[in-house]
Write a protein that binds this DNA or RNA. Structure first.
Lengths: 200, 200
DNA sequence: ACTCCTTACTGAGCCCAGTCAGTTACACCG
DNA sequence: CGGTGTAACTGACTGGGCTCAGTAAGGAGT
């Protein structure tokens, strides 16, 4: 009943703080050791919460990774979108969107691949998974926008082409064959495929 | 030292028999209940071997699925290849290769998706994984052959295009969005994308 | 302040994939 | 045949993700 300046009760604030501690703990441990080599116990301990509590904030370890990484991908997308706008050539513009995402994905190879795995095979009804899917959808929209802007294809064709680019990106980043490849190699690999997709 | 007609020792024969029992047991249990709902213990028990023995024949449960399913995919590929040869139109010929694979993959949706997951994210140095990758390579070769046969594109472009078709197939079959989709819906979805890839 | 309700939290424990020290079965040799 | 090396097998055990019955804490009404 007191202060209207602070609309949140103690309860809500505690929850928020816990979430932030979880994100901080998981983020740090994942970056340092890779998802596979971090146990949920370690994360809970570092976040100073019980093991069970962790799973109130993310249903599975995979969801936890999505929770932690989604923001990075969203940011990468934004950078790419801005870059693409300043780029005249269609292929270059598409690649301007692709590159930051590949860079984001490759900042830690194993985590990047696990992220992709969760995206495709995780439970789409979970909230963080949903957010990840939304980022993919936005990426495809951005690519479609570039393609239709160019006038090379109709808008529905552009949307389909964007889905294909998305599939190409996924496989190039996820394939175990490319697990050892660097950013440039992957970007180049994707570029070759995308260039074939654009009407000549 | 007796019979030269039977060149294998008891040891080798036992191994072979065990492998066959494992394949039979796993195959049946997977088909009946789905990979997720079958424990390695159950498989070992049904195959009448110790739990540890199972892992001498397949390093992980995922490898076990590949071991059991590879033959089906190889057969599907063969059927598709034969069909494609009899098909004049390029798009139809490509889809002739695609369809049996989708059918194979969808005979049990969860197992199909798990198979794809193992393919992309499993350990490529494991033997059954290697075989799976070889089937994919052969699929791409078959598609590339159809494309270059058509004279629509140079052989190197055909190879790249085949990789793209492969990526499209993968995502269309694996995506959780399509988890509820039937064979026809997926085939149609793939067809739409592939048609955009072919030079108009 | 006390009670009561609801929501959040907790950690002992479950389940199961995968391991490894110990055992067995085969093959080969003298 | 007995001895010996070796490959195959085994199941008790471990580690880790996740659950759930029980507990604590915030809020609301009196």
């Amino acid at each position: 009943m007191p202060v209207a300046s602070q609309p949140l009760g103690r309860r809500e604030r505690n929850k928020q703080q816990k979430l932030e501690r979880i994100i901080a703990a998981a983020s740090e441990l994942f970056a340092e050791n890779g998802v596979e080599d971090v146990t949920t116990q370690q994360i809970a301990q570092k976040a100073d919460i019980g093991t069970g509590t962790l799973f109130l904030y993310a249903k599975t370890k995979g969801e936890l990774l999505l929770l932690v990484q989604n923001a990075n991908y969203a940011e990468a997308l934004e950078r790419g979108r801005a870059d693409a706008e300043k780029t005249a050539d269609v292929l270059d513009a598409v690649m301007a969107i692709v590159r930051p995402i590949v860079e984001c994905n490759r900042s830690q190879v194993d985590n990047g691949r696990t992220y992709l795995r969760e995206m495709v095979f995780g439970d789409p009804t979970e909230p963080h998974h949903g957010e990840a899917l939304s980022i993919v959808a936005q990426t495809e929209e951005a690519i479609a926008a570039v393609l239709s802007r160019s006038g090379l294809m109709a808008t529905d064709a552009a949307a389909t082409a964007a889905r294909i680019v998305s599939a190409i990106m996924f496989i190039s980043m996820a394939a175990s064959v490319n697990a050892g490849a660097g950013i440039e190699a992957i970007v180049q690999d994707i570029r070759t495929q995308v260039s074939l997709l654009l009407p000549r």
